[in-house]
Amino acid sequence: MSSKSKPVLSSSIGKKLIMSLTGLFLCTFLVIHLIGNLQLFKCDDGYAFNNYAYFMTHFTPIKVVSYLLYASIIIHAVYAIVLSMNNKKARPVGYKQYNGQANSKWNSRNMGILGTIILVFLATHLQNFWWKYHNDQVPYVEYHKDLSTGTVTTHELQAADFTEYSVITENGVEITRARDLYKQVDFAFQNICLVALYVIAMAALAFHLIHGFGSAFQTLGFNHKKYVPIIRFLGIWIFGIVIPVAFALMPLYFYFIK
């Protein structure tokens, strides 16, 4: 007798595949998000950053990808909960003594806790910037760029005078009117509690990715003598250290230096 095997997504490996693919997609997002946000470190009163923010929220392909991104975050979290519940059920009676550190790394055993910290951070982060930007709760700004010299001067803009993002050229001066997300960032990061939350969340992200990045490839079945060390290197140094540290520097920069 022959029969069909269970559908892939109802299997343990299928669910892990979902975790792996959404996780890796979120990793690629981190790279883009970091590169864009490095413009926060430019000393131009947010001219580059605010233009970038407008571009990212109004360019159709980016918008499509952003919906994929929101979906990935939700799916990654939901599947994590489903898998964790299965795992709890797989060991109803625990050990009296369990010596985990003898055989595995702390972060690999606590991906759920690290992920929860990141999720709480994401909710706060989206509320602070994404929500405020999309709901007209950020200040406005007008930049005058002298096209012959290239110097940019910043002028405050009252809410009453702002209608829509616009770039007009008058008498050799390019006038850009935009929502001032940069000022909102500056304002938000004067709050020490928020800065602390961001730094803690980035530490959690670091430990989450040191395990998660390599783990995602293992789940995909990618295990090659020559290339696995490269993945491990990327997972630890790029995703585990460079990216979280660079992100953590942003709130610290605004709080201590700006």
């Binding site: 490996i13 898998l83 795992n87 003898a102 055989n103 690999s108 395990h211 295990n223």
Partner: peptide, 28 residues
Amino acid sequence: GFGNCTNTGACEAECPKGIKLTNIARMN
């Protein structure tokens, strides 16, 4: 009713026969 692997590597470390995690990648 076994659980789902999270690639902690505890199994490989505790295996008395030294079965490697590369097997799990191959199974996937």
